[in-house]
């Protein structure tokens, strides 16, 4: 059953251009994805593809000058501003990117206890339990954020989500800077959470890591989803993949030919009129450069391409 359903999500920023003119810059366009309970869905994309913004939009904590349309539903009901503010930290939790998300003046144990729904002695017991489970020494609780190593910081951040008892966990790039073993360990943790019944949305740019534990892969490009595929579709030469960009990503991996894709992702200010990927696509036809393809279901997945079959 889908716990999180994002439909036609569009995020635009208003920006002052000159003295009187305001410009809007659309950074996420018609984004669709669903996450079921017990599932890990990895959102994969390069930087600037709108991954973090998606996380912020789900939490209902976009900057003031952002305008958001489309719908986000949680457990079947629309997640509007009032409801998300009610559910944040209780049903929906986020694991942020870096140690700067911890208050520099508060001991980390206390900050983790703040995230627990239970207070007092129960909160402390839970925090000790979560720290032990995450391989954090008991003394870590008495440290300040600046005293943590990179790996410890990530575990502390993950602890806040685990202790909250949330059913939907959004992890916003929780692995950069970790060595491979630590990254895999983090991944295993989120897998366990999903196996225990949580819905996990795992945002990353590391497609290999995502493939090692996620159920579905959502490929983001220039602010929209190009393909939604099962992790199992990433195999062989990528013949089961639906979109040229996904195939290119797959073939760029060291084990699959190491073929780089030329060109770069368009800036939100200068989007091509047709398919966003057309300028870099070797199959691009006339249609591709003039019209945007719809996001269509295909073979137990979905794709945004005229030529997919």
């Amino acid at each position: 059953m889908a716990l999180l359903e994002v439909e036609g999500l569009t995020v635009a920023f208003r920006r002052q251009a000159g003295l009187f003119r305001q410009r809007t810059m659309e950074v996420i366009h018609g984004l669709e994805l669903t996450v079921d309970a017990g599932q890990v869905v990895a959102v994969v994309g390069s930087s600037g593809s709108g991954k973090s913004l998606l996380a912020h939009a789900i939490m209902g904590l976009l900057p003031d000058n952002a305008h958001c349309s489309g719908s986000i539903r949680y457990d079947g009901t629309l997640l509007d501003a009032a409801r998300v503010s009610e559910l944040r930290g209780k049903e929906i939790a986020i694991v942020p990117q870096s140690v700067t998300y911890l208050d520099p003046l508060i001991r980390v144990g206390k900050q983790v206890r703040h995230a627990a729904s239970a207070g007092g002695g129960e909160g402390e017991r839970l925090q000790k339990q979560v720290f032990a489970r995450n391989g954090l020494a008991e003394e870590t609780a008495r440290m300040y954020p600046h005293e943590l190593s990179g790996g410890m910081a990530r575990r502390v951040l993950a602890s806040t989500a685990i202790i909250s008892g949330a059913k939907l966990i959004v992890a916003d790039e929780p692995t950069p800077g970790l060595n491979e073993a630590a990254a895999l360990e983090t991944a295993r943790q989120f897998r366990e959470l999903a196996d225990a019944g949580c819905a996990v949305l795992f945002i990353t740019h590391d497609i290999q890591l995502a493939l090692s534990f996620a159920d579905r892969i959502v490929v983001l490009y220039a602010g929209t989803v190009m393909e939604n595929a099962a992790a199992a579709d990433f195999a062989g030469d990528g013949e089961r993949l639906r979109h040229p960009y996904t195939k290119a990503l797959w073939q760029a991996l060291p084990g699959n030919g190491f073929k780089p894709l030329g060109g770069s992702q368009p800036h939100p200010d200068m989007l091509p009129p047709g398919c966003l990927f057309a300028p870099r696509c070797c199959h691009a036809s006339e249609d591709c450069t003039s019209q945007r393809p719809e996001f269509m279901p295909l073979r137990d997945g979905a794709v945004r391409c005229f030529h997919a079959s």
């Binding site: 904590l61 939790a93 942020p96 998300y101 520099p104 703040h114 995230a115 909250s164």
Partner: peptide, 8 residues
């Protein structure tokens, strides 16, 4: 950190 506190 205030953003994250709100998120919690």
């Amino acid at each position: 950190y205030v953003w994250f506190a709100k998120a919690r």
